[in-house]
C-alpha cells in the first residue's frame, strides 16, 4: 500500500508535524511504500500533485492555526481538490492536527475542515487525531512511545495506525498532554519569558500593548 505523509506545517524543518509523522512512520510495517510530501507553501508542484494522487492513503499532519487550517495549506487543498476531482481516486484520508494549547479537542474544527475537504475531493474519510500541546511530543523526540510525554499518545496512535493500515474509518481521537494543565501552563509561561530574555526583553516587554 502506498501511504502519502503530508506535512502541512509552514516550517520546512523542525516542525511538530514532522515529529508526529516520524512517530507514525515507526509504527508502519516496512512492506508499505511511504511517500513524504512537504506542503509548506501556498502551491504544490506538478510532481507533488502526481505523488499525492498515486497514493492509497493520505495522512495530513498540520498545526492548528487560529482554530483552523493554516492559510497556505488552504491554497494547496484547493489545488489538490481540483486535481483529484478530475479523475476519481480511491484514497482514504487521515489527519493529525496539533495545537499549542492543552486540550486536544481544540483541534476538532480543523479536523472537520479536512473531512469536509475529503468530501469535496470525493475521497473516503478515515479518521482524525487531535493532539494538545504537540510541542511537548516534539521536544521528547528520543523518548520511546508510551513513556513520559508520549504516554497518552501510545494507545490513540496505535488505534489510528491500525485503522489506517486497514483503510478503515473511526471516530476522531483527542489526546491531552501527560502533565496536569496547571503545570503545563506555568511551564510554558516560564519558557516564553526565557525566550523573551534571549532577545533582550523583560517579562513586562512581552505584554506591551503598542
Amino acid at each position: 500500500m502506498k501511504i502519502g505523509l503530508i506535512n502541512g506545517s509552514p516550517k520546512a524543518i523542525g516542525s511538530t508535524s514532522e515529529v508526529l509523522l516520524d512517530e507514525l512512520k515507526g509504527l508502519i510495517p516496512d512492506d508499505h511504500d511511504l511517500v513524504s510530501v512537504g506542503m509548506h507553501h501556498a502551491m504544490l508542484s506538478s510532481t507533488q500533485l502526481e505523488d499525492i494522487a498515486s497514493c492509497d492513503v493520505l495522512v495530513f499532519a498540520l498545526p492548528m492555526y487560529m482554530g483552523g487550517i493554516p492559510s497556505h495549506m488552504l491554497h494547496c487543498l484547493m489545488q489538490l481538490e481540483k486535481a483529484l476531482v478530475e479523475s476519481p481516486h480511491p484514497i482514504t484520508v487521515y489527519a493529525i492536527v496539533n495545537n499549542g494549547h492543552y486540550e486536544g479537542i481544540q483541534n476538532e474544527t480543523t479536523i472537520a475542515m479536512i473531512k469536509n475537504w475529503t468530501n469535496r475531493a470525493h475521497l473516503k474519510w478515515g479518521q482524525g487525531i487531535g493532539i494538545g500541546t504537540g510541542l511537548m511530543i516534539a521536544l521528547a523526540k528520543d523518548v520511546p512511545m508510551g513513556h513520559g510525554t508520549k504516554k497518552n499518545l501510545a494507545h490513540p496512535y496505535s488505534t489510528f495506525v491500525n485503522n489506517l493500515l486497514d483503510r478503515q474509518s473511526g471516530d476522531n481521537l483527542y489526546v491531552n498532554p501527560t502533565y496536569p494543565r496547571f503545570a503545563l501552563l506555568q511551564g510554558a509561561n516560564h519558557d516564553w519569558t526565557k525566550q523573551g530574555k534571549a532577545h533582550g526583553l523583560r517579562k513586562k516587554d512581552l505584554t506591551l500593548a503598542p
Binding site: 492555526y65 483552523g68 492559510s71 497556505h72 488552504l74 525566550q195 523573551g196
Partner: peptide, 26 residues
C-alpha cells in the same frame, strides 16, 4: 471553504497572532 475562511481571509486571521500575548490562561 471547507467550513472555514477563504485563503486570504484566513491568512489575515493567522497574522493576528500579535494581537495576543504569548502567556497562557484558561
Amino acid at each position: 471553504l471547507y467550513g472555514g475562511f477563504s485563503p486570504f481571509v484566513k491568512n489575515v486571521l493567522d497574522r493576528t497572532l500579535p494581537y495576543h500575548q504569548p502567556y497562557l490562561t484558561i
